[in-house]
Nucleic acid binder design. Structure first.
Lengths: 262, 262
DNA sequence: CTATTGATGTTCGTTTATGTTCGATACGCG
DNA sequence: CGCGTATCGAACATAAACGAACATCAATAG
């Protein structure tokens, strides 16, 4: 148990139990009380909890609202396969806009080397993934950092997007319905519309689960989307209405065991 | 077992076990710990896992960590002391601009809780550090992600800065001379000037080593700086010319043995 | 064959994480 | 309020881990 994970666990316990004692924490991982004291001092300094004599209490008085992003990535294999199909639609030298989300993040991770791409994104995770890439120019579109989600939104982001024309824009989505694409956050929806308005070609990358989901905010009509890339788990019903509407869809085959070996 | 496949296996183990130690990995393929360390540094730089003292843990998508991969921070103690002095000059409700650099990052890390601050920054590290803070609104000023340094520069950043008026701006610097403040990157210098132009009060936070350094680009004249916060290791010569110029300086005491020059 | 390159191992000074000691401080109780 | 006890944190100590620099070896190119 290293320092960082121990501090995370301490936070979890503080949030769950309301208050914790130095002694009990020290016992839990068999470390000295001094180590725990240092952890608490650390966390307190960063505003994650409040120190008390003998222990600590949650920082926000009573309100426990810290969601740890423990939710595992459900369709990891599908997303990787989709990402591979998406990058085939990206040519060297292009300016590519990457939306926020785990699927687009997967796209960022497997962008081919030496394509001399310019990537524009609102996602801090995408920026982090591409940060070390010498061959890619990364433009982070400024804005307000969203809580509980590592990305940028707001009027600044919108006006920034309008300054760039992109050859490709890769969109994620929370829900896909016959009447359009949906997301759960109105701020994200505004950005999605801005991205679409400034893209030559819009690619929607979404695993099959998105076809069963519902979400609040419509962020695009179908005529704005040029290509949909999804996996072969896409329900027949969805395939039917997409075919009917002549939507250009690519179904990526996914092996049930996931992708092995490279 | 070549490097590439070994790194893939490392990733598999990190994902499966949740965390791994350098030692155990080294044992697994009978390679030196240095090789594993290099592998982990590699993978960490690409965002595939997060480094921990003694090993590594999975990088959960949604958690962003930017780290300065530059050389070890030499004046860590001084910077922390300086940061403490800087935050005393920040009041609740303020809009604070934080320049890029390790000193300003330290300021971000110890910003008091429940000050309801708005922090504007060009530093991805600062944004990542404040990301979890519910009580702070973080605005990341968009721009091009600089290579080898987790921050944003370029015309977009400059025009973004001009959209905000800040109560305080905390600057770092690479070199401090009698005729002004210097930095090594002309892009950063442009941003520094923009920040100064939009700030009510400019605080220069710099450890004593900066007074011995030299750098290429002048980014500010002395009349633009309202306060300098440095540590007590500041050379007498620098103290003299700052006094002569009536520059408002705060010398933060640093515990014994703080500075170990070569 | 030799020069070059990339991966790996080795050395060594530095940093980090943790434990221990001890005087100062805070708490609880009468 | 005063007292005893628990807790605190600065200072010191130590072992492990770290990474820069250098050395070595194998594969490859010229």
């Amino acid at each position: 148990m290293d320092k960082r994970s121990r501090q995370e666990r301490i936070l979890e316990r503080v949030m769950r139990d309301g208050d914790v004692s130095v002694e009990s924490l020290a016992g839990e991982w068999s470390v000295s009380v001094m180590t725990i004291r240092r952890d608490l001092a650390d966390l307190s300094r960063r505003g994650r909890l409040n120190r008390r004599h003998g222990g600590a209490v949650p920082s926000r008085s009573g309100i426990v609202e810290f969601e740890f992003q423990t939710r595992r990535d459900q369709c990891a294999a599908e997303k990787q396969a989709i990402a591979r199909a998406v990058v085939e639609r990206i040519q060297p030298g292009m300016a590519v806009g990457l939306d926020t989300g785990t699927t687009t993040l997967e796209v960022a991770r497997i962008l081919p080397v030496d394509y001399k791409l310019t990537v524009l994104t609102t996602s801090l995770a995408v920026a982090a993934a591409l940060y070390a890439r010498e061959d890619i120019e990364v433009v982070l579109l400024g804005g307000n950092v969203r809580k509980n989600c590592p990305d940028l939104t707001g009027p600044l982001t919108e006006s920034n997007i309008r300054q760039f024309r992109m050859h490709r824009v890769v969109l994620g989505a929370d829900a896909i319905q016959p009447d359009g694409i949906y997301t759960t956050d109105v701020r994200i929806a505004r950005l999605t519309r801005a991205l679409i308005a400034n893209a030559d070609e819009v690619i929607l990358a979404a695993d099959h689960r998105k076809f069963d989901n519902t979400a609040f905010v419509k962020c695009a009509e179908w005529d704005a989307v040029h290509t949909v890339v999804t996996d072969s788990g896409c329900p027949a019903k969805a395939r039917a209405w997409m075919k009917k509407r002549k939507i250009n869809v690519q179904y990526v085959p996914v092996r049930s065991g996931g992708s092995r070996h490279a």
